[in-house]
């Protein structure tokens, strides 16, 4: 009986997500089979383009588990990309120190936000919104132009960005010229999947992970159990900003440029991915596997829109927002029925 009860709420949300993804992808395969949607590479491209988003969504899930939210991620990514592009493109600095700098900035950024939210108990939305505008503004302070990273500027970074990891040949297909095209992934995908695996492990098997669930589930009971709620919240925001920095590097490896307008609305995609993946906005429920599927759904929507070719790109924004709306309503309906059953 207990198992059934557990099944009804959270797993259903995750199941809906997975079914939705498979359904959408299958529909894409049927409609756009002539445009190469059925190739394995299309699916891998989904991972390649969304590697940054996967990292960010993992961080977002951790924050949302505590019942908070972090909307500074998009701007933070823009700032990271700008630092990389400006450092390498204009100043000619090597890339390893820059990457370390970005990771440190992520830690500090998260620590400040986390302190204000955890210890001073200010609403997470206000603080991270201030952080969002701060980071976006700082991007403009560094440089207002769009900078591209070319091969001459930093051969090493360029090599990373264009490195291919080939998969076994039988997954490939034969193109019009009779050549076999072997599917490949980029190093960013490995980083992203590694992040998912680590966060999955952390949430499931470590003390910190269990604390996140406890704080989000019921803050008062968590305090009474002797958990350090403030520190846990602060750590969650540090983790989010740190993962966001890793995501920023992946994002930059994809786009190879930095500009003020980059990653606009990225926070929305990250939040949508987590919510679609079954993470409750009220906290305490969710996992990163769901978020991974959320990201894939997000990516499928934009791939469908671009494959169509006739639709405006703003359609993918609208679709994501509509899907987010749908899942939020679904969540509150689940909460409503749960409440009614408990009564």
């Amino acid at each position: 009986m207990k198992k059934l009860n557990k099944f009804s709420g959270n797993t259903v949300l995750l199941l809906i997500t997975i079914v939705l993804f498979i359904g959408m992808y299958a529909a894409g395969c049927v409609i756009y089979s002539a445009k190469g949607f059925t190739h394995v590479q299309t699916f891998l491209n989904l991972l390649i383009t969304n590697a940054g988003l996967i990292c960010v969504a993992c961080g977002m899930t951790c924050v949302m588990l505590t019942g908070g939210i972090d909307i500074s991620v998009g701007s933070l990514i823009a700032m990271d990309c700008m630092i990389l592009a400006y450092g390498m493109g204009v100043k000619g600095w090597p890339c390893i120190p820059l990457i370390i700098l970005i990771l440190v900035i992520g830690l500090i950024f998260g620590a400040v936000q986390g302190y204000l939210i955890g210890y001073l108990k200010i609403q997470p939305f206000i603080i991270t919104m201030a952080g969002m505008f701060f980071a976006r503004g700082m991007t403009a302070v560094i440089c207002t132009d769009q900078i591209s990273i070319t091969q001459d500027m930093n051969p090493m970074f360029y090599k990373w960005a264009n490195a291919k990891i080939n998969l076994p040949g039988f997954l490939g297909y034969v193109n019009k010229k009779g050549k076999t095209v072997v599917p490949f992934i980029r190093p960013t995908v490995v980083i992203a999947l590694l992040v998912v695996a680590i966060i999955f492990f952390v949430l499931k098997y470590t003390k910190f992970g269990r604390n996140l669930y406890a704080v989000g589930g019921n803050q008062q009971s968590a305090t009474m159990m002797g958990l350090n709620v403030k520190a846990t919240k602060m750590k969650a925001y540090i983790l989010s900003s740190f993962l966001c920095s890793i995501g920023g590097i992946c994002y930059c490896l994809n786009t190879m440029s930095g500009s003020v307008q980059q990653a606009l609305g990225f926070e929305m995609n990250a939040i949508a991915s987590s919510v679609i993946g079954g993470t409750l906005l009220t906290g305490g429920v969710g996992n990163v596997i769901g978020s991974l599927f959320g990201v894939l759904i997000n990516g499928t929507i934009s791939t469908l829109v671009t494959t169509n070719g006739k639709l405006l790109s703003s359609w993918s924004n609208i679709m994501t927002a509509a899907l987010l709306c749908f899942f939020i309503i679904l969540q509150s309906l689940f909460a409503y029925f749960k409440n009614r059953n408990n009564r």
């Binding site: 939210i69 909307i71 939305f125 609305g265 929305m268 939040i271 906005l281 405006l312 703003s314 359609w315 924004n317 609208i318 994501t320 927002a321 509509a322 987010l324 709306c325 939020i328 309503i329 509150s332």
Partner: peptide, 30 residues
């Protein structure tokens, strides 16, 4: 969304934060 479904105001308004601008672009044919 906020009053009836009891969703946190900022999450509820986040939907239109992204979508409204995109819908505007559609209305004006980009």
């Amino acid at each position: 969304l906020v009053a009836k479904l009891k969703i946190q105001p900022m999450v509820a308004t986040l939907i239109l934060f992204t979508a409204a601008r995109a819908i505007g672009l559609l209305l004006c044919n980009n």
